[in-house]
Amino acid sequence: MILKEFYEVLQTEHKEDLYHTTLRVNKDHEIYKGHFPGRPVTPGVVLMQLFKEEAERIYENSLQLARADNVKFTAVFDPTENEELILESQLEKNGDFIKLKGIAKNHKGIVLKINSLYKRL
C-alpha cells in the first residue's frame, strides 16, 4: 500500500463483479499539508491510486497501471467536509490483466469516473 495511513476500509460489499467499498480518509494526512494549506484537496492521482489499491486488495495481487481511459474529475474531494469516500468498482479479470470501471463519490456526488487496465505482477 503506497498510501500509508491515508485511509481505512470501513466496508466492502460485492455482488458478482461489482464492488462498493466505503473508505474513511484521514483528513490529517501529510498529503493535505501541501495540497493545500487551509483548503485540503485530494490530488487526482491519489484518487486514481485508491482504485488500484482496492483492486489489489480484492484480488490479493500486486498490480501495475497499464492504461487509464476516460478519467474525469468532476468535483473536489475535501475530507474536512466528510471523511467518507465510496468507490464503486466493476472488475473483470482477463488473464494477466484486470479491467476496472469505477466511480468515486462522496455525500455531494461523483468525484471521479475512471476506466483503467492493470497488469498483474
Rank of each mutant, 00 (worst) to 15 (best):
L117W: 05
P40S: 01
L3Q: 04
L121A: 12
L87Q: 04
E5F: 14
E60W: 02
N106R: 06
K93T: 15
V45A: 09
H29Q: 01
E16W: 10
Y19F: 14
F73G: 04
P40I: 03
E54S: 13
K105S: 12
T22P: 04
R57K: 14
K52D: 09
D69N: 11
E83H: 06
L10W: 11
F36R: 08
N70R: 09
K52Y: 10
T80P: 04
M1P: 12
K52W: 09
L87K: 05
G95M: 01
K4L: 10
E92T: 12
I110H: 04
Q64E: 11
V41E: 04
H20P: 00
L100D: 14
E13M: 07
K113F: 03
I31K: 02
K52P: 13
Q64F: 11
E56F: 03
R67A: 15
G38N: 07
K33V: 01
M1D: 11
N115A: 10
H35I: 02
D28Q: 13
I114F: 04
L47H: 01
P40E: 01
I110P: 01
L121K: 14
A66Q: 14
I110Y: 05
A75M: 09
A66I: 11
Y7F: 15
A68T: 07
F73M: 06
K33M: 03
D17W: 07
L85F: 01
E56V: 05
R39C: 00
V41D: 00
Q49H: 08
V9R: 07
E30D: 15
E16I: 05
E8W: 02
H35S: 04
D78I: 03
G102Y: 01
V76W: 02
I98C: 08
G95E: 07
A75I: 09
L18Y: 10
G95C: 03
E92N: 08
A104S: 15
I2W: 12
E5N: 15
G44M: 08
T42K: 04
Y19V: 03
N106I: 02
R120Q: 15
T21Y: 05
N70H: 13
K72F: 09
D96I: 12
I31S: 04
P79Q: 05
